[in-house]
């Protein structure tokens, strides 16, 4: 079997996805046998120009991790799309916007002010902010544009598969590699993960739920057998796609939703708000307000990984705002 051409690329992300690929241990050797690595900034050296030289579709598979915040990232996404037969949104950032997507709760100006002027460690007496061009004695220097918001990969270019997770778990990466190797890929647009919510995989015992307030995991002695929600710990598992094997809840940590919305869920955060609100044991607004006040940062909690693809961000119009 001829080797396939593989690219791995990284935009707005933490790099954990690269580490996850390395985590496949023995499998990584198989990857080496299976594929020519044409681009992988973490492992190999490569230049834009090398990539530009490739013909359309010359890359067989591209694992793309990271969301899109900068014009340079968008340009790379477009370039890789053009050169790749199969483009896989790899990890939560690329699939849903991920953690960088939380920045969409703030405007660009606020982010700049905070990052370049207000943080205690900033030393910027002239209050200089990043600009796309600046003229210096030697000529003009350029920087990529910092967009008004963070996008998921599929808001910029068409995506063939999604491999969610922060980062994707090894068993799913292995499954994806096997599928690529055997040419048995699922129908385009598929999410390579489970088809229910995390609760389905979560081994905890579930009962009717009624809570009178919320606790963070470090504030309670967690009962290892009972559903975390029933213990007042907000868990995003109920609206999050399965496939992870409930890695977090098995070790007493609540699900934070890195697999994105469960298959039928339109908006992960909104659905979590509505279902979590449903289990409050309160009959009047004052009590509800009191109970809700025990929850730290509900917006950031419920939209932890999926804000850019939420209805708040015009999901129904493809999320393309600019």
């Amino acid at each position: 079997m001829p080797k396939i051409n593989l690219a791995v690329y990284w935009t707005a992300a933490c790099g954990g996805c690269d580490v996850a690929i390395l985590d496949t241990e023995a499998k990584i050797l198989e990857v080496g046998e299976l594929a020519n690595i044409v681009l992988w900034p973490l492992a190999t050296d490569g230049k834009y120009a090398d990539l530009e030289k490739l013909g359309p579709g010359e890359i067989d598979v591209c694992l793309f991790h990271g969301s899109i915040r900068l014009s340079e990232q968008e340009a790379m996404a477009r370039l890789l799309r053009e050169k790749s037969k199969v483009l896989i949104a790899f990890g939560a950032c690329s699939s849903f916007g991920g953690i960088p997507g939380l920045a969409n709760f703030h405007r660009r100006e606020e982010i700049f002010r905070r990052a370049y002027q207000e943080t205690p460690s900033t030393d910027n007496p002239n209050g200089v902010l990043p600009e796309t061009q600046v003229r210096v004695a030697e000529g003009t220097l350029t920087l990529p544009e910092f967009y008004h918001q963070v996008y998921s990969l599929d808001q910029v270019v068409p995506v063939d598969y999604y491999l969610p997770g922060c980062p994707p778990p090894v068993h799913l990466i292995v499954a994806a590699i096997d599928a690529i190797a055997s040419g048995q890929l699922p129908p385009k647009g598929s999410v390579i993960a489970g088809d229910k919510s995390v609760c389905h995989e979560c081994p905890r015992e579930k009962q009717e739920k009624k809570v009178r307030g919320f606790k963070r995991p470090h504030e309670v002695l967690v009962d290892p057998n009972r559903c975390l929600m029933e213990q007042g710990i907000v868990c995003n598992g109920p609206s999050t796609r399965s496939g992870c094997g409930a890695r977090c809840t098995k070790v007493n940590m609540p699900c934070r939703g890195c697999f994105g919305p469960a298959p039928e869920v339109l908006d992960q955060g909104a659905k979590l708000v509505s279902s979590t609100a449903s289990i409050l044991d309160a009959s009047d607004e004052a009590t509800v307000a009191e109970m809700v006040s025990t929850m730290a940062d509900p917006a950031g909690l419920f939209y932890r990984f999926s804000l850019p693809v939420s209805m708040l961000q015009k999901k129904r119009q493809g999320g393309k705002v600019s």
Partner: peptide, 13 residues
């Protein structure tokens, strides 16, 4: 829909 229900039991109450 039994194909979608994850058995979380939130609806029961």
């Amino acid at each position: 829909d039994p194909a979608v229900c994850a058995g979380c039991r939130i609806c029961l109450g």
